[in-house]
């Protein structure tokens, strides 16, 4: 499982029924959740077991693979524009 490439999950909110099944099956540490009682969608999952995708009753979770240790793009704030 852990040999998988990390993934970033995406939830089709239009179909999501906030049932929480994805969180219930998720083997991640505490806190890998979104404010809508789903698995987190704002940071990569390094386990990538994809169990959440298979349990989702309305099949609304997808993922994209992300590179390991993506350099975080620095947030550039141009003070002259503010």
């Amino acid at each position: 499982m852990s040999k998988q490439q990390p993934v970033l999950f995406s939830i089709g909110w239009n179909a999501c029924i906030n049932c929480g099944a994805c969180v219930a099956i998720c083997p991640q540490e505490a806190g890998f959740v979104s404010p809508f009682d789903t698995i987190a969608v704002d940071r990569p999952c390094d386990i990538a077991c994809l169990l959440c995708e298979s349990i989702c009753p309305v099949d609304t979770i997808t993922h994209v693979a992300v590179m390991q240790q993506v350099p975080q793009p620095a947030l550039v704030v141009d003070p002259s524009r503010s």
Partner: peptide
Amino acid sequence: DGLQSQVGKWAGLQTHIKITELAGCL
């Protein structure tokens, strides 16, 4: 805190449920 329980995880308990034992319901 229900099936999505985080409290057990805070204490490091083995809370993981097998995919063969959690029914997805609608």
